[in-house]
Computed example of a mutant assay.
Amino acid sequence: MLDFTVNLTSLGFEAGLSEGEKELVYLRSRSAGLTVSGCAHAVFAYELLSLLRKKVNAENGCTAKAHLCVGILGGGHMGKQLAMALLRSSSLKPRHINISTKRPETLGEYSNMGVECYFDNIRLAKWADVLFLCVLPSHLPQVCAEIRCHLPSRCLVYSFTSAVPLNRLAVLLDHSFLIKPQYEFVACDNVTTIWLLHNQVTSALRDKEVISALFPLSMNGGLFLDQRWVSAVLYSLLNMCTAEKLSSGTTLQLLNGLFKTKTLTYHSFVNTPGASDLKNPGDLFPWISLVDAQTKDTPLSDLVSRDKGLRDCISVMYYNVFFKT
């Protein structure tokens, strides 16, 4: 039977809106764009960390824990979207992800896939190598007070709570191994429609046009990402190697191998005036505060901004996460 209502503009979303309300329609695109880009960039960050973990294990001859434990704190809309994006668009296995939420009984779809769902934020914080914060800003102070004494120093916290500034979040958690992407949105009628092409994040992440619009170093579609996010992700990789007591020489070898480049040197990450360019390759890199990496100019942010070859390597890796070659 034919559906005679298909394509009738009188039944469309905007048909009953006043002129004043129509001016706010761009907020739909903004919300969808932020959700899709947030999930895409989180998947990319996870994949980089996962790939490096495998390289580090191979270097150390360790196979005891070849995977990263991923925790999602919050099972609302954002937490669910992120969990599905990670499960469908990355190499993450259901058994390596846990979700803590006040209502775990609402996550039956994920439990059936093999994801462990419960309400115990402290347990999640102690267990996770990467902890994604997907809670409402109003709940954040209580959540942070609950988990701050239980976060291992090497646990990377990745926050989706956009209304809370990074420095404030660092204080609440007493934790500097922390990433919080900063997005800006400019409403443009000719580009924002890309974010409304898909009803599900997972389908959007299979669309080459969408993924191309979300290249971290050259976003379009009205969305812009603070470029220091890329530096923070790269510094998180550096810290992973430092936590494993890998020498600076081995760390650089692994990171250059990961990005298929020869660009990265000791001074790409650390600014040490007066130090020899030939840094002792047996020394460890210092532990880097990711809060500083996202709030200040760093040697790495400078390198990324001026080295097109490195930017191209990062973009290729990003694209290959979603479309394996």
Rank of each mutant, 00 (worst) to 15 (best):
V6N: 02
N7I: 10
L8M: 08
G12Q: 06
F13V: 11
A15H: 10
V25C: 08
R28E: 14
S29A: 15
S29I: 05
G33A: 06
L34P: 00
C39S: 13
A40Y: 00
A42M: 04
V43Y: 02
F44H: 13
A45K: 00
Y46W: 08
L48F: 07
L51T: 02
K54P: 01
K55D: 15
T63Y: 12
A66L: 09
H67P: 01
V70Q: 04
V70L: 11
G75M: 05
M84W: 06
H96I: 07
I97W: 01
N98P: 00
S100K: 00
P104I: 02
G108E: 11
E109S: 09
Y110F: 15
S111Q: 14
M113K: 08
E116G: 01
C117R: 00
C117A: 14
A125E: 02
A125G: 04
K126D: 13
K126I: 15
V130Q: 02
L133S: 05
L136K: 08
L140I: 09
C144L: 03
L151D: 03
P152N: 10
L156W: 03
S159C: 14
F160P: 00
L166I: 10
H175P: 05
K180Y: 01
Y183G: 06
E184Y: 13
C188N: 08
N190F: 09
T192C: 11
T193W: 10
H198W: 10
T202D: 10
L205D: 03
E209N: 09
I211V: 15
I211Y: 08
P216F: 04
S218D: 12
M219D: 04
N220Y: 13
L223M: 11
L225N: 02
R228S: 15
A232I: 05
A232K: 01
L234A: 01
Y235C: 15
Y235V: 09
L237H: 02
T242M: 09
A243C: 09
E244S: 13
K245R: 09
L246T: 03
S248T: 11
G249E: 03
G249I: 08
T250I: 15
L255I: 10
N256G: 10
N256L: 11
L258T: 05
K260H: 10
H267E: 12
S268Q: 04
P273M: 08
G274M: 11
A275W: 07
A275P: 00
P281M: 07
D283S: 13
I288T: 11
L290D: 01
D292C: 12
D292G: 03
T295L: 14
D297T: 14
T298H: 04
L300V: 06
L300G: 01
L303Y: 01
K308F: 14
K308C: 06
I314Q: 00
I314A: 02
S315M: 07
Y318K: 03
Y319V: 14
Y319A: 15
V321Y: 08
F322P: 04
F323E: 03
